[in-house]
Amino acid sequence: MLKRMLATVAVLAIGSGAALAHVSLQSKEAPVGSTYRAILQVPHGCEGRPTNVLRVQIPEGVIAVKPQPKAGWTLEKIKGAYAKSYDYHGTPTSEGVKEIVWSGGSLGDDEYDEFVLRVYLTKDLKAGETLYFPVVQECPDGMAERWIEIPAEGQSADDLELPAPGVKLVEAAGGH
């Protein structure tokens, strides 16, 4: 039993500890062909300054994006054409939200908050790969924290200074 307990702890520790020092996604795994609730965790501002703007880039293959409004923040959805047409429950979809901006708020450097959006992960995305949501935090005086680096082949997110938050894609749940 001790062994199992340690294993549980180890899995949880690895799952939660590894990347949370930066802006990160709370759920680490999601099946393709499903709706995913992306919770972005913002642990700090820019070198002591508060975060006023949070921008999230929607990766290709992610459609039907709906951000959750936040009190005290203005929400903006920047739309555009997708690189190709995606199937959303039988309907072809070729344009939609490409970037989300929460602005006008003030999240102190010594405070923590979460920003939520609901998206649909199309079946065109490949299970086994990691999907990255690049995030930019903007602060006063032109300061910014950019979590926009995506690991190259053979690299891991730990090798990067400014890793973009990512979610590991898994096989679609059966039945659909």
Partner: peptide, 8 residues
């Protein structure tokens, strides 16, 4: 662990 990991 999660709380600790927030600190960066």
């Amino acid at each position: 662990l999660a709380a600790a990991a927030m600190a960066h």
